[in-house]
């Protein structure tokens, strides 16, 4: 049972970690790091480390997100689209133009 809970949490955590790199909005990326922190703190509880879980919940899911969000505001990145995430699909333009020329 614990294993399955851990499996779900790990999957959520890794998806959130990938989202941190791929989401275009920095605000959403910071929120995704908080999700990673929260999942980690649950995982620490399952690994019988309540002290570490408490720290991670307070720091990873709370304080660190606040620091990053304040930094976003100060860096002028508090907006929904910045255009610098890792782009998984090819950018529309030259790369796409050759492929679907016949379409």
């Amino acid at each position: 049972m614990l294993t399955w809970i851990a499996l779900v949490i790990v999957v959520v955590m890794l998806v959130a970690a990938v989202l941190v790199l791929t989401l275009r909005s920095f605000v959403a990326a910071v929120a995704a790091t908080a999700v990673v922190g929260l999942a980690l703190s649950v995982l620490y509880v399952l690994l019988q480390a309540p002290d570490v879980a408490m720290t991670e919940a307070a720091v990873g899911a709370g304080l660190s997100g606040v620091i990053l969000a304040l930094a976003l505001r100060r860096l002028g990145l508090w907006q929904l689209d910045d255009g610098d995430a890792v782009v998984l699909k090819p950018a529309s333009g030259r790369a796409g133009a050759g492929g679907d020329a016949d379409a």
Partner: peptide
């Protein structure tokens, strides 16, 4: 109980913030 200076300190900072 689980806890101590580091954890409690972070929560205290969050309270004031």
């Amino acid at each position: 109980t689980p806890g101590g200076g580091f954890q409690g300190g972070v929560i205290l900072a969050a309270a004031f913030f």
